[in-house]
Design a protein around this nucleic acid. Sequence first.
DNA 1: ACCAGTAGTTAGCGTCGCTGGGTAGCGAGG
DNA 2: CCTCGCTACCCAGCGACGCTAACTACTGGT
Lengths: 115, 115
Amino acid sequence: MGNQLTEMLKGTLEGIVLAILARRSAYGYEITAWLRDRGFSDIAEGTIYALLVRVEQRGFVDVEKVPSEKGPPRKVYSLNAKGRDQLAEFWRTWSVLTDRIEQLRHNGNQHEKGA
Amino acid sequence: MGNQLTEMLKGTLEGIVLAILARRSAYGYEITAWLRDRGFSDIAEGTIYALLVRVEQRGFVDVEKVPSEKGPPRKVYSLNAKGRDQLAEFWRTWSVLTDRIEQLRHNGNQHEKGA
DNA sequence: ACCAGTAGTTAGCGTCGCTGGGTAGCGAGG
DNA sequence: CCTCGCTACCCAGCGACGCTAACTACTGGT
């Protein structure tokens, strides 16, 4: 029945990851661990990898393979120009949605538009 | 490619509709029109009907068939107790998500958790 | 030799919103 | 009378997304 948060993450998780990459480059395992630390403890391991593949295919990130001393090579992702555009677009859309919803939440949204 | 907003609506649209029904009972066509008025102009007609069927099946709303002078009978939906619980849960989850994302947005979320 | 931790990949699933069509009832116009 | 347009609802099929549950591969410790 996928809980609320799972459904809400659809569409926002990509923005979240892009926002993380906007700060600095990172690899999948790192991002997953970091999200867990930050309260996004509910995000599944595999989800991030799939998402990273997607954003790579769309050309929002550049990738570099970096050897690790502790395991298989890491795929380090960096946000590029197109990715920064996408992130900006994400924040715009996010603002629109949150604005409308907050309006709906507090404001006595009387349906009676006439007045 | 479903634009951002479409993806973001997943999981939130249900809450939006429940919030509308919390103010007063309404039928599908009415809700659709009202959403269009309120800037949610991008929401597809059929989407609302499918959503209403879903929330009915989950027992969040009660339904009453009311004849219309201008067309086929309306199905008027009212939020019931279970629906109010669900709506409260929705707001809780929504708050959690927005809090985390706003934190990510402004706050210089240095990954360097160490020092 | 074995296991735990690191790091990434894949196939298949369920949910959601969208698309595009259809049905039904009523009133106005040709 | 027949069609058009508005009201009002329903349905099948689609793509995108996140989740589940596996698997591969490399390193270091016991």
